[in-house]
Design a protein around this nucleic acid. Structure first.
Lengths: 238, 238
DNA sequence: TCGTAGTTACGTACACCGTACGTAGTGCGC
DNA sequence: GCGCACTACGTACGGTGTACGTAACTACGA
């Protein structure tokens, strides 16, 4: 029987093919792809071991030959979509390169709306995560700073992107598990907010909603925040 | 029988005490406190309807008289701990005030490590969230900017705090659901990282880990990121 | 070459989850 | 004081992750 002891391991250190026994029916990439397909279509909550196994056409428990815990399935998923990051030869303009990186990350998260929820530094060791990080560092070669500082910049940038997309998707993803529509929910919340503001207890919020800047351009908001963060790290500024 | 139809509603708009019938055994605050107690002690995954009901000493299904869905229980929890935010008269130095706000938020999230996972703009309508936001805006009164811009600053700041604490807590919270210790897991991951770096495929990451800046001071890292974000929004800079 | 150990495959079973629904009892509004 | 909205809560259903046992299969050591 296989060793089922609770021994710490990273899934990437485990060989895809063991020496003995019949040859595995799937590769890790197949499993990750199936899980990603399900998550893209039905949301992260639709990703269950039974569901993924069914998508692959095998028994539920067979999955556990490839993935010791469901957590590891998540790790496979994050790595799989991290592989969609396009890389390029650094242009020499680190600011432009970082903006491109950030835009790409945002696009990726919009394509896979479950990604922000799974973003975690503990997944930063996967093969594609390492490639991505190395690429970011390469883009930052022109910057005069320690690698520690560069890592912080990359981390902060990724975090800001994750956060913005999380907020952009919040109501949409929430409505997936709700028995009524996103618009209905929003209307009710706005109505409640209005009633609270009308009480006069929140004068500045009232003023804020009086401003009425028209429809919000999420792309512009994102670009502005991005620019500000890059400004803050620009060594050529005060 | 009560109306069980799937009608959109905000829990805050529902009156605590209905006109008819026996008087409720609990207040919303009791329920929120019980859930927070459980989450603080056993992690967010320990918060189940059965568990919370047991903590309160009532039947599981009785909870649904107060909280239509589990999601709403989460909303109660976030509001409850948001009430722990201390408020003060703005000092006139908006930068100092925002730093204090950020530090307080970080402390709060360390006290309730499940908070970052529940942070969502859709919970921004709760009573205590509104009070918090109004207080932030009050601290920003000295700043010459539109309320829209101020809201963005507050949002970005909260997001950055959330993100940093999420990362700070990531391995600790993860180890809660793992059958081995955090240190063991870290050791295995670092070992794997070392083996990958030794391959020579990631020269910059190798260099980064050669730098060896000694033990990382998380507080200092946080403060630096915070300062940079505030710099980015400072109208007195370039 | 052959036995055997290690592997794959997977059905069954268990504990737990959110919650739909039915029923009984309570007390306010008419 | 009647009726009804509300509280309370037991039961039950369909889902979850996964421990464990068993059967089939293959590469290696003898």
């Amino acid at each position: 029987m296989a060793d089922r002891a609770a021994v710490p391991e990273v899934i990437w250190a485990r060989p895809e093919r063991a020496g003995r026994g019949p040859k595995p029916a799937f590769r890790r990439a197949d499993i990750a792809a199936a899980a990603v397909r399900i998550a893209d279509g039905g949301g992260l909550d639709a990703v269950s071991m039974r569901h993924v196994a069914a998508e692959l056409g095998c028994g539920t428990m067979s999955l556990y030959n490839y993935v010791p815990r469901k957590e590891d399935l998540y790790e496979l998923m994050v790595d799989a979509v991290s592989g969609e990051h396009e890389e390029w030869a650094p242009s020499g303009d680190w600011r432009a390169d970082m903006i491109r990186v950030a835009h790409q990350a945002r696009t990726l998260m919009h394509r896979h709306p479950w990604l922000p929820r799974l973003m975690s530094p503990v997944y930063g060791f996967s093969p594609n995560a390492l490639r991505y990080l190395e690429h970011c560092l390469a883009c930052l070669d022109p910057v005069e700073a320690t690698y520690g500082m560069k890592m912080q910049l990359v981390g902060l940038l990724n975090g800001v992107v994750t956060m913005y997309v999380t907020n952009e998707l919040a109501t949409a993803e929430r409505s997936r598990s709700l028995p009524w529509s996103e618009d209905q929910e929003n209307a009710v919340r706005i109505a409640y907010l209005g009633s609270q503001i009308a009480g006069g207890a929140y004068p500045r919020m009232a003023a804020a909603f009086m401003e009425d800047p028209g429809p919000i351009d999420l792309d512009a908001v994102f670009d502005m925040a991005l620019a500000k963060v890059l400004d803050a790290f620009d060594p050529e500024r005060g």
